[in-house]
Measured scan of single mutants.
Amino acid sequence: KNAAKIVNEALNQGITLFVSDNKLKYKTNRDSIPSELLEEWKQHKQELIDFLTQLES
């Protein structure tokens, strides 16, 4: 999976991924984040940080 797909899947579940101080963060109104999503974010962390940083610049 690529970073764009992961970010879109998160958005579809009401979760916004973003970068703050070079760290991957998220915002959501959900009570909890599915563990498989958290695991996927960890596996692709640097790719996600790079992707989101490019989007914001």
Rank of each mutant, 00 (worst) to 15 (best):
S35V: 14
D21P: 01
T28H: 07
P34T: 05
L24Y: 01
N22F: 07
G14I: 01
N8L: 15
Y26M: 04
T16E: 13
I15R: 00
E40A: 08
T53I: 14
L55M: 10
T53L: 14
I15M: 03
Q54D: 08
K42L: 15
E39A: 10
N12H: 10
T53P: 02
A4T: 06
A4P: 06
K42T: 11
L55R: 13
L38R: 06
L11M: 09
D31C: 07
L55W: 12
A3F: 04
H44F: 12
H44M: 08
I15C: 04
I6G: 01
T28Y: 05
Q43L: 13
D21Y: 05
L55D: 09
N8H: 13
L55A: 11
I15W: 02
N12L: 14
D21W: 04
A10C: 04
D21L: 05
W41S: 01
D50E: 15
L52K: 00
Q46F: 07
A4Y: 12
Q13F: 11
K23T: 14
T16H: 14
N12S: 15
N12K: 14
K1S: 12
V7L: 06
L17Y: 00
P34K: 05
K5I: 15
F51D: 00
K23V: 12
R30A: 08
K42C: 10
I33H: 02
Q54E: 12
L24V: 05
I49M: 07
T16D: 05
S57R: 02
L17S: 01
N8S: 13
N12A: 15
K27G: 04
N2S: 15
E40T: 12
L24G: 00
Y26A: 05
Q54R: 13
Y26H: 04
D21T: 04
L52N: 00
L24S: 00
V7P: 00
R30E: 05
L37E: 01
D21F: 05
N22Q: 09
N8Y: 13
A10T: 03
F51K: 01
Q46A: 10
K25P: 00
E9Y: 07
S35Y: 12
K25A: 10
L37V: 06
I33C: 03
S35T: 13
S35I: 13
S20T: 10
K23C: 09
S20E: 15
Q13C: 08
N29L: 13
I6C: 03
I6W: 04
Q54K: 15
D50V: 14
D21I: 03
L55Y: 11
S57Q: 13
Q43S: 11
I6M: 10
E39I: 09
Y26D: 01
W41A: 03
S57N: 13
Q46N: 11
D31H: 09
E36K: 09
E40V: 13
A4V: 07
N29W: 08
E39C: 06
L17F: 04
K27E: 10
N8I: 13
V19H: 03
E47V: 11
K5R: 14
V7D: 01
G14N: 05
H44Q: 05
D50Y: 12
